[in-house]
Computed example of a mutant assay.
Amino acid sequence: MKSTQYIGNKTFSVIDKAKVDPLSDEVRIKVAYTGVCGTDVHIYHGMMDKRVQMPVTIGHEMSGTIDAIGADVTNYKVGDKVVVRPLDDRGVLPSDKGFNHICENLKFIGIDSPGSMQQFWNVPAFTLHQLPKNTDLKLAALIEPLAVAVHDVRLSELKKHETAVVLGGGPIGLLVALVAQQTGAQVFVSEINPKRIAKAKELGLNVIDPTKVDLIEEVKNRTENRRADVVFEVAGVQATLDIMTEVAGIRGRIVMVAIHGQKKEVDLFKFFWKELRLIGARVYEKEDYERAITLVTENKVGFENMITDIQPLTNIQSVFEQIDLNPDGMKVLMDCQQ
């Protein structure tokens, strides 16, 4: 089998190695597709060198079919289509209050242990979600990031006829907007990049370019001055932190989707003045994965338009180099059998 390895200094290698039989509680997956996410790009840039154990096979946005089963695995069979929820929560403690997806000793598979950018991948069976037989495995590679969006929208408690503003039209921002629309809410995406604006419109989303119109005034005009019931901060820059408390209306809910590695300035006065709520949202839970699978299976929102390129696994070095040269793309998949 072929396997990729990040070896540091913006460098990947492709090696040949023997397939390994799964342990008693594992399955071996023939990986169909793996998507490249922002975390993978951070690893490529060396931003996580202190965390990953090089050489390391990364990747976690994937789809595939079961190739072999460990002796103790009884609820799956060879040939089943599956995705992996890449959270290893075996270190859960009572102090984690049952929230296994954010437990203190959580390990993220594909970062803290080998990931899916290889032809065959051994994983614990408890991480699996089975897919319907007719599932398109290309679309199924979007289930992991889509589950992030489902989790964000679920925690926001967004309801029909409310208004949501998504600050940032990258891959996660657009998935959040697409999921938010399924609630029956009025949804706007704030984005300044022309290519991402075009993609959002292609997906049928309402887009506001804050470099051309005043975002706050535009939202006020479309909500009879009420502003937004929910704001999703996805861009992760100071400008969106500044605007999120302005565009939120009275008792608005702000969901922090972006990861801020350093302390940032936030207008806390607005939280007092308008009784705002700030909601943290991290990864996903089992129910979010199941909802994402349903959305992909139904495919009523054209998720295929999120996929901007598919490349052979053996092209991994050029895939990451091209992402650096063209950061405007949405979702690049690697065909892990090529």
Rank of each mutant, 00 (worst) to 15 (best):
L174D: 00
G170Y: 05
K160N: 14
D229C: 07
G169T: 01
R227E: 10
V230A: 04
A235D: 11
G169F: 01
V166S: 09
T245W: 02
K212C: 03
Q181L: 15
Q186C: 08
L241C: 14
E202H: 08
A147P: 06
A164C: 10
R154T: 14
G168R: 13
L174N: 06
R226G: 05
S156I: 00
P145D: 06
E217M: 09
E218L: 02
L175G: 00
R227P: 03
S156V: 00
E217W: 05
K201E: 15
V150R: 11
V219Y: 08
E157N: 15
H161Q: 13
R222W: 01
T211S: 14
D214Y: 13
V234Q: 04
L175D: 00
A141I: 01
V231R: 06
G249Q: 06
S156Q: 00
V247G: 12
K201P: 04
D209V: 10
Q238H: 14
R196E: 04
I192W: 07
R251E: 15
F232K: 14
K195T: 10
E233F: 07
D214R: 07
V219G: 06
A147K: 07
A177P: 02
V207F: 07
S156T: 02
G169P: 08
V237L: 13
S190Q: 12
E157P: 01
V231S: 13
V153R: 10
A198W: 01
E217C: 02
A141K: 00
K201H: 09
N206A: 09
P210N: 05
K160A: 11
N221E: 09
A147R: 12
I216R: 05
E157C: 10
E246T: 07
I250E: 14
M244S: 15
E191C: 12
N206G: 03
A248R: 03
L158I: 08
E202M: 10
G184C: 02
V189F: 03
A149N: 10
G168C: 12
L205G: 11
L158K: 02
